[in-house]
Amino acid sequence: MNYVAWLLVTWLLLGLESPLLGSFSSQLFAPDVLVITAMFAAHRGGLLPGILTVFIIGLLKDGFCLAAPVGVFAEVGVLVFLGMRLASRHTDLRSPVSLMATAAIATLVATGLFMMFETIFHREFGSHAQALRMALPLSLITMLAAPLQFALLDRAGRLFERRSSAGSMFR
């Protein structure tokens, strides 16, 4: 049930992100919610349910960003998830500093992947320079948002788990 909670929280964050950042004219400085959730799922969840969750979230992000071809963010999310799974032995995400540093690197990687897929599959894409220019600010803002989103996902997962276990007791 944790995965459902992560999915719902990330969907909510994506839903909030779009109009909220548009309202404050800072859409270019939106944290990469998908990358953080992929990191969290890779760190806390199992391989298959985690990757499925990240895949669905990636598709949802594709739904929020239909200017890019559908599947870009799903693929990026899945790859970040797998990369974090592979690197989990060498990274400790319990410390905020390492979490932030990892988030920054993961975001840079995700941006690189995004540019690569856009270049390959999106023939109309012509914003490489802007994507490159925004890569560093995006990683920084994601880095700052990572601890908060981790805490939020952790709390939501626990809440869902408690509810589901309480419900099963009465059955």
């Binding site: 594709d62 071809p69 599947g71 599959f121």
Partner: peptide
Amino acid sequence: QGTLLLGLVLILPLALMYWHGKP
């Protein structure tokens, strides 16, 4: 099962990107 699912979530987005990237 696991390998198939993994392959699906990796290949399906690529297929989607290919399909939706057409002008």
